[in-house]
Design a protein around this nucleic acid. Structure first.
Lengths: 129, 129
DNA sequence: CCTCTTTTTAGAATGATTCTAAATTTATTA
DNA sequence: TAATAAATTTAGAATCATTCTAAAAAGAGG
């Protein structure tokens, strides 16, 4: 594991946010000012392939990086901020309901976060789409 | 609703596949050869906003379009093909478990489809990541 | 028919990510 | 330790899906 790969892993494991590739790159530059963006992408891909970090793809086609320990995500329909939630693992119940092998799953729950909830008419935006 | 919007809606409702924007565009051109790609994108966005179709964002940052009736997706970890599955709606159980309002959710289940399952060593690829 | 609004067009712009080929670093093994 | 091989990084160009822009066209209502 190279110094860049290690530092990127640390950045992600120690972050409370869900960072974009660009945000990871900015943090990486604080320690290694000369580093190049492609290196950041290379290592984000490598770490993802190795299963050490996890890529979350948002509806607007942008990615965030996260720890791998199994958990689910609340995504705010307004500000798009992500919050981790630790719901019980559904793998085996999905297997049972589907009758097939399940490798993993990805559950994104759309909500209005507390910061945004005041800014919406709840009846219109939550009651029905 | 314009002829383009209507035709795009028909293309998606009548397709058994989960089409990409480009595939929708190719099909649209069969009926309206002069139409331009931006029109296709405009209308895909409009239809999505109107809730008449649904956008699925894959891990590789590409989109597919689908009917809106609530259902979940099996995504093959090898060929990335999508299959619809109609699992029971979890909205209310999620609300209960989380203790917050839930607008909707998006569940993607990763598996190896029957076409790809022969090409993998199941112990390695399914047992653990 | 006139005015206002919406949609379409053409093509440029954007922006995230990937690619390429050369340079550098790290690891291997003679 | 020197030589060779493999992996990583670099710089910047390329890609590709999508969005933007401003002008033209189409549609709707009075």
């Amino acid at each position: 594991m190279t110094k860049y790969e290690l530092e990127i892993l640390n950045i992600i494991l120690n972050s409370c946010e869900h960072l974009s590739a660009d945000e990871v790159y900015e943090l990486l530059k604080k320690k290694y000012p000369g580093v190049v963006k492609a290196t950041c992408y290379n290592n984000l891909n490598k770490l993802t392939d190795e299963g050490l970090i996890r890529r979350i793809v948002l509806d607007n086609n942008s990615c965030r990086y996260d720890r791998t320990m199994r958990h689910d995500h609340l995504v705010c329909i307004k500000c798009e901020k992500i919050k981790d939630v630790y719901l019980k693992d559904m793998t085996s119940s999905l297997k049972k309901e589907l009758g097939v092998e399940v490798e993993s799953y990805d559950l994104k729950i759309n909500w209005l976060c507390p910061d945004c909830i005041g800014q919406y008419n709840l009846n219109n935006s939550l009651g029905r789409k």
